[in-house]
Nucleic acid binder design. Structure first.
Lengths: 201, 201
DNA sequence: TGGGTGTTGTAGCGGTTGCTACATTCGAGC
DNA sequence: GCTCGAATGTAGCAACCGCTACAACACCCA
């Protein structure tokens, strides 16, 4: 109430939020604490709590920023040559920088919000909507018929999120990497088949 | 070296591990700390660190236990009447107690291990293997041909994990729940189609 | 009966956490 | 020039963290 939570999105606050987001991308969200973060971005915990109402306010701001960036990155994807290519291109983009970082933060936030803890659960719910819309737009632009885009988006979203959750496993297990590419291929084929069928199923 | 990390899996250690697992299922893994955990299960942090080498040892034990229970639960599923039903039954089982709790802990552990932090990353890698095998067994028993079980398992595993990550969103968004059931249906249809095709794709 | 050995309680260490009280600096408007 | 408010530094609070030193039990074996 006393400190400006959002009223004046002062330049300094915005700048700190950007830097904090970069730091979270590099070091993760789960263990985040104010003093190391402040040290890393060249300020003090005191100043973070001056520009943000509390840690939750800062975290929520960072999460929204990361989501904005990832939605922008998704929107900037060139349209693919068809539904199958759209899935392959999407996975290629999401599994490498910079989008990978953003989605990883989303996964961390989801895990933190699994039991309903705020601000994680709330911001994840917000983010999901815009993310979902951007994903659907990409699929539509790439040839998925409008009336099926929603179904395809749900399938792709779930699959991709699940793959990302186990992404680190591929670093030590070649078999896991192979299975992953097979899943992407099967998913692409499914979306393509769905898009070509006159009626769903 | 001094304290028994694993040599004598004393009854007391085992009992504490079971109780700690129950507590983690109810209160989450991410914020876990020794003193509240000890208080909740009727012992002291001192005793936890007597029976377990350190917090990491305890966490690893809990994660393995949770994974064992979830694999057992998966193995106990009655065989379904076909590949499509197998997916529906699987989702029904995973999205409700007790399996839901175990998978939720797995998701938390994956998030904690996203940046390679131990013991999370290591145990998640272990768990993934046995979990994957159990999932494949269920699909095979339910009519997915052997030579396609691996592909189907990868697809189902990724999808289901992704759906579970966003499960809480359904509690405040009816539209999200609808999309979820659609995804499960599409996934079931995909697995069924995959199982009936003479050659994949 | 005495001495281990395995288990537990008490107390505390050094460090970190989010957050705040207080004092200071600085720059813009009267 | 002076004041006033926004921005920043210093210091510290109370709580918590993982972990450990030390002492006290209880029990079995000699």
């Amino acid at each position: 109430m006393s400190r400006p939570a959002s009223p004046p999105p002062s330049d300094r606050r915005q700048e700190l939020a950007e830097q904090a987001t970069d730091h979270v991308l590099a070091h993760g969200l789960i263990g985040l604490s104010l003093r190391p973060l402040a040290r890393a971005i060249g300020t003090s915990d005191r100043m973070l709590l001056y520009h943000f109402a509390d840690k939750g306010d800062l975290v929520a701001t960072v999460l929204r920023l990361a989501n904005d960036r990832s939605v922008d990155g998704l929107a900037a994807l060139p349209r693919s040559s068809g539904p199958s290519a759209a899935v392959h291109d999407l996975w290629a983009a999401l599994s490498s920088s910079p989008l990978l970082g953003y989605v990883r933060v989303y996964v961390e936030a989801s895990a933190l919000g699994l039991l309903g803890e705020e601000p994680y659960a709330g911001v994840v719910a917000e983010s999901n909507r815009s993310w979902y819309a951007a994903l659907a737009a990409h699929l539509r632009e790439s040839g998925v018929p409008d009336h099926l885009a929603d179904r395809a988006t749900g399938l792709v979203d779930a699959c991709v999120l699940g793959l990302l959750l186990d992404l680190p496993l591929g670093e030590r297990d070649a078999g896991h990497r192979e299975r992953r590419t097979a899943v992407v291929a099967d998913l692409a084929a499914t979306v393509a088949a769905l898009s070509e069928a006159p009626s769903g199923d």
